[in-house]
């Protein structure tokens, strides 16, 4: 892992088009400003992991599952 030390107001670039700025440091919290192209996904880690984990679970669906849920749906 690359480790950099920055002060409030300073920033860094990742490649040519992703810019991260340290906006404010207050106690244990840091406010970051992130400028990135819309094609880049920027998410808090816990949110990213939650969606990724849900996608991984969902990817295991089988044909028989759809037959079963279609039947359950029609019964509702």
């Amino acid at each position: 892992m690359l480790i950099l030390t920055r002060k409030s107001g300073e920033g860094l670039f990742i490649g040519d088009d992703i810019r991260i700025t340290i906006l404010e440091i207050r106690g244990k919290q840091i406010r970051l400003g992130i400028e990135a192209p819309t094609s880049v996904v920027v998410l808090r880690e816990e949110i990213y992991r939650r969606i990724q984990e849900e996608n991984l679970q969902a990817a295991g669906a089988r044909d028989v599952d759809v037959s079963e849920i279609a039947q359950l749906w029609r019964q509702e």
Binding site: E54, A58, E68, I69
Partner: peptide, 11 residues
């Protein structure tokens, strides 16, 4: 939206 179907527990 994507569905997650627990194996054997479609309900």
């Amino acid at each position: 939206v994507i569905l997650t179907i627990p194996p054997g527990k479609p309900q």
